[in-house]
């Protein structure tokens, strides 16, 4: 699954640690999501969408 978490985080000027703290997850988890190594659960994906104020499908897409 592809996602735009890294770009959205960059737009806000947040570090991975900042985003991790806002989502109440580890920095390792943010890194794994951004690099596509780990697909978040639905509740965490909704939390990310709510934090950036965007619909979930504009952040995550299933890819090819």
């Amino acid at each position: 699954m592809n996602n735009h978490v890294r770009e959205l985080r960059g737009d806000q000027g947040w570090s991975q640690a900042d985003l991790a703290e806002r989502l109440d997850v580890s920095r390792q988890t943010v890194n794994a999501i951004e690099t596509g190594k780990y697909d978040p659960s639905l509740p965490l994906a909704f939390k990310i969408a709510a934090l950036f104020g965007r619909p979930i499908e504009s952040i995550f897409d299933p890819g090819a």
Partner: peptide, 8 residues
């Protein structure tokens, strides 16, 4: 209580 990736 840890996050989902840590638990995994």
């Amino acid at each position: 209580d840890q996050d989902e990736l840590e638990r995994r």
